[in-house]
C-alpha cells in the first residue's frame, strides 16, 4: 500500500524533472554561448564586433572580428527567401484550406510533409548540382553559388512551415464569418480576400516568423549553395557567407580557447538571440489567433 504511494511520488518527481529539463537545456545553451562568446570581448571591442564588416580572425598581425557582413548576408538571404516563400506559401495554404477539393488536399498535404522531410544537406546538394548551374546559365555568371541560390533554397526549406502553419490559421477562422459574407452575396474569392485572410492574419504572421526563423538558422543549404565569400553583399548575384555558414566553416579549424574560438560562440550567441526574438514574436501572434479561435 505504502509502496505504490512511494512509486507514485517517485514518478511524479521524475516526470517533473524531465519537464523542467526543457527550461534547463534552453538556459544552458544560452549560458554556454554567453560564457564562451563573451570572452571574445576581452580582445575585441563590442563596437568593432557589431559595426565592422571585416571578419578576418586569421589575418596576419591584426585579426578582425566584425560580424556586420555575416549579419547582412544572413539578412539578405532570409529576405530573399521570404520574398519567394511568403506569397507562395500563403497562396498554397489558401488553396489547400479554401479551394482544393478534398482529394487534392489529401495529395498536397503529404507533398508538403515530404518537402519538410528532405534533409537540408540534400537541398544544398540540389543547389550545387541543379540550381547553381541553372542560375549561372540564365544570368551569364561564372558561378551560380550566390545569395540568389541560397534564397531560393531557403524558400524551399521555409515553405512547409509557412504552408502548414498558415493553413492551420486559415482553417481556424470561424465558419460563421465566411457564411455571413456568403449570405450577403459576396463570392468566395472576395470572401477569402476580405474576410478569411484578414481574420487569419495574426496566424499567418506567426507562420511567416517561423519561416524566417528557419531561414536564419539554416546552415547546410546556405553553406553549400552561397559560395561563402567573406564580403559585404552588394547584390543577389554576389557570393555571401551567413553567420551559420561561418560557424560551420571555421569551428572545425580553430584551436580550443582562442579568441577565434570564442568569437564563433559570440556569433552563435547573436544567432541564438535572433532566433529567440523571432520565436517570441511568432508566439505573440500565435497567441492572438488562438484567442480568436473560440
Amino acid at each position: 500500500m505504502k509502496l505504490r504511494h512511494l512509486t507514485d511520488t517517485f514518478f511524479r518527481y521524475l516526470f517533473l524533472v524531465a519537464g523542467v529539463s526543457a527550461i534547463g537545456i534552453l538556459f544552458s545553451i544560452f549560458i554556454m554561448l554567453a560564457i564562451n562568446g563573451l570572452q571574445t570581448f576581452a580582445d575585441v571591442s563590442i563596437a568593432q564586433f557589431i559595426l565592422s564588416a571585416q571578419w578576418n580572425p586569421s589575418a596576419f598581425g591584426e585579426p578582425s572580428y566584425g560580424i556586420l557582413a555575416l549579419v547582412a548576408s544572413t539578412f539578405m538571404v532570409t529576405v530573399g527567401a521570404m520574398i519567394i516563400a511568403v506569397p507562395l506559401g500563403i497562396g498554397t495554404a489558401a488553396y489547400i484550406s479554401e479551394i482544393a477539393p478534398s482529394y487534392i488536399r489529401e495529395t498536397l498535404k503529404p507533398v508538403v510533409e515530404i518537402l519538410a522531410g528532405i534533409p537540408s544537406v540534400v537541398v544544398g546538394f540540389f543547389g550545387i548540382v541543379f540550381l547553381g548551374p541553372l542560375i549561372a546559365d540564365m544570368f551569364n555568371l561564372t558561378s551560380g553559388l550566390n545569395a540568389l541560390n541560397g534564397s531560393i533554397l531557403l524558400a524551399v526549406m521555409a515553405l512547409p512551415t509557412i504552408v502548414s502553419v498558415s493553413e492551420d490559421a486559415l482553417r481556424s477562422v470561424p465558419k460563421e464569418f465566411k457564411e455571413a459574407s456568403y449570405a450577403l452575396g459576396v463570392n468566395r474569392w472576395l470572401t477569402l480576400i476580405k474576410i478569411t485572410l484578414p481574420a487569419a492574419s495574426s496566424g499567418i504572421v506567426a507562420a511567416v516568423m517561423l519561416g524566417v526563423g528557419r531561414a536564419i538558422g539554416e546552415t547546410m543549404t546556405v553553406l553549400m549553395a552561397t559560395g561563402n565569400a567573406l564580403q559585404m553583399p552588394g547584390s543577389f548575384f554576389d557570393s555571401v557567407r551567413t553567420m551559420t555558414a561561418n560557424i560551420a566553416i571555421e569551428l572545425g579549424e580553430v584551436p580550443f580557447g582562442t579568441t577565434h574560438y570564442y568569437g564563433l560562440f559570440a556569433v552563435g550567441l547573436v544567432l541564438f538571440l535572433m532566433s529567440l526574438a523571432v520565436n517570441i514574436t511568432s508566439e505573440h501572434f500565435t497567441k492572438k489567433y488562438r484567442w480568436t479561435r473560440k
Binding site: 519537464g19 523542467v20 526543457a22 527550461i23 537545456i25 534552453l26 544552458s28 545553451i29 554556454m32 554561448l33 564562451n36 517561423l210 526563423g213 536564419i216 538558422g217 539554416e218 546552415t219 551559420t244 560557424i247 560551420a248 569551428l251 580550443f256 564563433l264 560562440f265 552563435g268 544567432l271 541564438f272 532566433s275 529567440l276 523571432v278 520565436n279 517570441i280 511568432s282 508566439e283
Partner: peptide, 30 residues
C-alpha cells in the same frame, strides 16, 4: 512553471541546428 516549460520547448524547437552544434562542442566535447 508550466508556462515556462512550454515556452522553453517552443523556443528550443526554433534554436538553429548549428547552435546545437556549438553547444555540443562546448558541453559534450570539451
Amino acid at each position: 512553471l508550466t508556462r515556462w516549460i512550454r515556452a522553453s520547448i517552443r523556443n528550443l524547437a526554433g534554436v538553429p541546428s548549428i547552435v546545437y552544434g556549438l553547444f555540443g562542442v562546448a558541453l559534450f566535447v570539451n
